[in-house]
C-alpha cells in the first residue's frame, strides 16, 4: 500500500478541505471495485485516500419537483432496489442490474462507474440516455455539466479525483409519453462486460407511435459512451413502425465504429447493436419500459 492515511469524512465540505489540503496528493475512493484492482497492477501515486462512503447526502436517491437526484456513492444495488427509480428511471435500474455480481453491486457506486469512464460502463450508458447532469464540488465551488461531457477517452474522465468530488447525478422527471430501457449482450448471463450495450430514452406523442424525441446511448462503440445522433435524427418525428425499426437497426450499425476485441469483432458488434436497438424499440412500442406515472406498478 502506498498511501499513509485513509480518511472517512462525514460531510462533502470536509472531503473537499482534505483534497485542497493534500494538494493533489490525495484522491477520492468510493466502492473501490475498480480502483483497488487498478492499484494492484498500477499502484496509485497518492499519500491519502478519502473514502466518501460515510457522507450521508451522497448515498441518497431523491426527487424534487423537476428532477431526480442520485448521490454519487449510491451503489448499484441501491439503484436496483429503488422504488422511485423503478418507476422513473427504468433504464438506470436495468443497467445497474447487469453490472458484475451481487457482491460488486453491493459495493460499487454509480459515481465510480462514471468517473472510471469506460466506454461501455452500464450506468454511464444509462445516464447518457437520460441526458443526466453531473454535479461536482471542488475547492472553487459547485458546478454541473452533462454527464456525456465528462468522458475524454477510455478510462479518462475530465473529473480529477484528486481535486474534485462528484456529489450527484440528476435528470428531469419523466413526463407523459416518456419511456426508457436498457439492453446488453455479453458472453455470459452474469459477471461479464458487455459485448454491446444500449440505453434508450424516448418520448412518444400521446395516443400514437410518433416519436417526439429520442436518445440512444451505446457502448463500447467509440472511445467513450456514444450517442447515436444520426440514428436519433432519423427517428425523430417519425411514426415508429416495423419498417422504421428495421431501418433504425441498419442505421445504427452503420453509424457506430467499434473496435475488434476478443469479446467480439467490430463487425459482430456493429451487427449486434442493430439487433438490440431493434428489440429495444419494439419493446418500447409494446409499452414496456414505460417510465412515467402512466405505467401501472
Amino acid at each position: 500500500m502506498t498511501w499513509e492515511n485513509y480518511y472517512m469524512p462525514l460531510t462533502t465540505g470536509e472531503a473537499i478541505e482534505l483534497l485542497v489540503e493534500k494538494q493533489g496528493k490525495a484522491r477520492i475512493i468510493a466502492g473501490g471495485t475498480d480502483l483497488m484492482v487498478q492499484h494492484r497492477s498500477d499502484p496509485l501515486n497518492v499519500r491519502a485516500l478519502i473514502d466518501i462512503g460515510r457522507i450521508p447526502g451522497l448515498k441518497e436517491i431523491r426527487e424534487d419537483s423537476r428532477r431526480i437526484y442520485i448521490g454519487a456513492s449510491v451503489t448499484h444495488s441501491q439503484i436496483v432496489n429503488s422504488a422511485l427509480l423503478k418507476k422513473k428511471g427504468r433504464v438506470l435500474v436495468e443497467a445497474a442490474r447487469t453490472v458484475g455480481a451481487p457482491q460488486i453491486r453491493n459495493v460499487g457506486t454509480v459515481g465510480g462507474n462514471v468517473v472510471n469512464a469506460q466506454p461501455a460502463a452500464d450506468t454511464a450508458i444509462a445516464l447518457t440516455a437520460l441526458d443526466a447532469r453531473i454535479h461536482i464540488l471542488s475547492g472553487d465551488g459547485e458546478f454541473e455539466k452533462p454527464v456525456i461531457d465528462t468522458f475524454l477517452g477510455p478510462g479518462k474522465s475530465c473529473i480529477d479525483p484528486s481535486k474534485e468530488l462528484v456529489t450527484a447525478f440528476s435528470y428531469s422527471i419523466p413526463g407523459p409519453g416518456e419511456r426508457s430501457c436498457f439492453a446488453r449482450l455479453a458472453r455470459r448471463e452474469s459477471l461479464a462486460l458487455p459485448i454491446v450495450n444500449l440505453g434508450l430514452w424516448l418520448c412518444l406523442e400521446e395516443d400514437d407511435h410518433i416519436l417526439k424525441d429520442i436518445r440512444i446511448a451505446v457502448g463500447p462503440m467509440s472511445t467513450v459512451p456514444f450517442r447515436a445522433r444520426e440514428t436519433e435524427a432519423l427517428l425523430k418525428g417519425v411514426l415508429l413502425d416495423k419498417a422504421v425499426i428495421e431501418k433504425a437497426g441498419r442505421s445504427i450499425s452503420d453509424e457506430v465504429t467499434p473496435r475488434d476485441s476478443f469479446r467480439g469483432s467490430a463487425d459482430f458488434k456493429k451487427q449486434m447493436i442493430g439487433v438490440i436497438l431493434k428489440r429495444s424499440l419494439e419493446s418500447a412500442l409494446e409499452g414496456k419500459g414505460v417510465d412515467s406515472d402512466e405505467r401501472e406498478q
Binding site: 455480481a101 458472453r187 455470459r188 448471463e189 452474469s190 459477471l191
Partner: peptide, 10 residues
C-alpha cells in the same frame, strides 16, 4: 474476467 466460465446464471 476475460476467460468466461459459465456462472450459476448460465
Amino acid at each position: 474476467h476475460d476467460y468466461c466460465l459459465p456462472t450459476a446464471m448460465d
